[in-house]
Amino acid sequence: MYGEALYKPEMKEGNPIRLYSSDEITEIFGKLGLRIYNSFADFNGKPSSDNDIQLMVYSIRE
């Protein structure tokens, strides 16, 4: 859960990377006083989608 202390997971197999959905990112940024104005899937400005693993976010502090 966002805002709580994290501890290194004890994993013997698998990948411990946490992926966030765009809704989760929007919520996290909102709690920090940021509004997301746009998001991209790459540095060429490709619009982001749920099928892309990379998410670049353009946000402004409110």
Rank of each mutant, 00 (worst) to 15 (best):
M1A: 12
M1V: 15
M1E: 08
Y2R: 10
Y2S: 08
G3V: 02
G3D: 10
G3M: 07
G3T: 06
E4D: 09
E4N: 09
A5S: 12
A5Q: 09
L6A: 11
L6F: 08
Y7W: 06
P9E: 02
P9N: 01
M11L: 15
M11E: 08
M11K: 12
M11Y: 07
M11T: 11
M11S: 04
K12D: 13
K12S: 15
E13V: 11
E13T: 12
E13S: 07
G14T: 04
N15P: 01
N15E: 12
N15S: 08
N15H: 10
P16G: 04
P16W: 05
P16N: 00
P16E: 03
I17T: 15
I17F: 11
I17N: 06
I17A: 13
I17H: 01
R18A: 11
R18L: 14
L19W: 13
Y20K: 09
Y20S: 11
Y20P: 02
S21D: 04
S21W: 03
S21F: 05
S22N: 02
S22Q: 07
D23G: 02
D23I: 05
E24L: 05
E24K: 13
I25A: 14
I25H: 05
I25C: 14
I25E: 11
I25T: 11
I25W: 02
I25F: 03
E27Y: 05
E27I: 04
I28D: 02
I28Y: 14
I28V: 14
I28P: 04
F29Y: 15
G30S: 15
G30L: 10
G30Q: 12
K31Y: 07
K31P: 00
L32D: 01
L32A: 15
L32V: 05
L34R: 01
L34V: 00
L34F: 15
L34I: 04
I36S: 00
I36E: 13
N38Y: 04
N38C: 01
S39H: 11
S39Q: 15
S39I: 02
S39C: 07
F40C: 03
D42R: 09
D42H: 06
D42S: 08
F43G: 01
N44K: 11
G45A: 08
G45P: 06
K46D: 00
K46P: 02
S48D: 08
S48E: 00
S48T: 04
S49W: 00
S49F: 01
S49R: 09
S49V: 03
S49E: 06
D50E: 13
D50Y: 01
N51A: 10
N51W: 03
N51Q: 10
N51C: 01
I53V: 10
I53M: 05
I53G: 00
Q54A: 13
L55D: 05
L55Y: 04
L55F: 00
M56S: 04
M56K: 04
M56A: 08
M56P: 00
M56R: 02
M56G: 04
V57F: 04
V57H: 07
V57N: 03
V57L: 09
Y58M: 09
Y58N: 04
S59G: 10
S59P: 01
S59I: 00
S59R: 01
S59Q: 06
I60M: 14
I60Q: 15
I60G: 02
R61G: 00
R61A: 08
R61D: 03
E62M: 10
